[in-house]
Simulated scan of single mutants.
Amino acid sequence: MTQQIKKIAVFTSGGDSPGMNAAIRSVVRASAFNKIDCVAIYRGYQGMIEGDFKQMNARSVNNIINKGGTILKSARCEEFREPEGRKRAYEQLKKEGVDAFVVIGGNGSFTGAVKFTEEFNFPVIGIPGTIDNDILGTSYTIGFDTAINTVVDAIDKIRDTASSHNRLFFVEVMGRDVGHIALNAGVGAGAEEILIPEQNLGLERLLDSLKRSKKSGKSSSIVIVAEGDKTGKNVFELKEYVEEHLPIYDVRVSVLGHMQRGGNPTCFDRVLASRMGVKAVDSLLEGKSNCMVGVKDNKLILTPLAEAIKAHTEIDMELLKVSDIMTI
């Protein structure tokens, strides 16, 4: 990169995740610390195309580190998928005097950033903000820790009811393509079975597991189901299948849904977001671009955005083994 960075833009894109506000705060204050201007872009790429910018300073981000969601809003933008839309976005950035931007989001957001920087050679750094923890190049994404704690808290409450009424609960959690939330929350909450997209365990194994649980003296059971699980078409069909083949169970379904995205971020996510925001600004000032900030072995690293979006992260096989042992 040959240009000098004098003004950085920051925005959030795609699905919201707890800790995004902490990352915004970090980028804004790291810019102020380095005595460079920072502008916020509202509504992601849509706001970029429409020139929805706001000048920021260190005081603009007071009292947001503890808030869930994103103060900059987020939106899907079909227009940015087209060359004409990206050209309009570039023109708005240049009109505002923006030299580089930091995008906080997931795979879709980074895919747009890769295309944009290829076309306009524009300096870009990504910060992974998604509850799914599915991006290559980082052990943790911002929001994942908060999400699994939210899920565990919900399952603990559901278990109280399950135990009181001797019921089997299917609890559906987010995870269309990866089962990180289901696996981690399932182990943490002591679930009797965990169904994830990475492994089609089959309906017979599920029945066998529930039979063993009943035989061992368990009066209630919790089965965690990632929404992308391949065992059944959906969690309600799983319920019907078990009721048909194991009528001894009183079966209920609880779909946690978007509550997993909300809530105040945990300390872990606040600290991670703060570290990544500073790293993103430092990286731009050092002349780096088209990279994502990640964390590995508690050290911040950079991964090319094109690598980060190539595939989803793999499931932790050691943790999968632990889950199998714990359900005995």
Rank of each mutant, 00 (worst) to 15 (best):
I24V: 14
S289N: 11
N200A: 06
T117L: 14
D52F: 04
H180A: 05
G294E: 07
E243W: 06
V124Y: 00
Q260R: 06
A308K: 01
S139C: 10
G97C: 01
D132I: 02
N264G: 08
L319Y: 00
M20V: 10
V251I: 13
G44D: 01
I248P: 05
I71W: 06
E204Q: 10
G232W: 15
K94N: 07
V114T: 07
S283C: 14
R43G: 06
R59K: 15
T141H: 03
L201C: 08
A75Q: 10
V293F: 01
A273Y: 08
F80Q: 00
S17Y: 01
P197K: 01
I49K: 11
R205T: 14
V235C: 12
Y90Q: 04
Q55M: 05
A147I: 03
E118G: 05
S323G: 01
T141M: 04
I131L: 00
G19S: 06
G217A: 11
Q199P: 02
E318F: 09
E204L: 09
V151P: 02
G106P: 05
E91F: 07
K279Q: 14
V235Y: 09
L272P: 10
E193D: 12
A147K: 02
K211F: 08
E50V: 03
K296H: 14
H312C: 02
S221L: 12
F144K: 10
L183R: 04
L284W: 04
G19P: 03
R176W: 10
E192D: 15
G179L: 07
A147C: 15
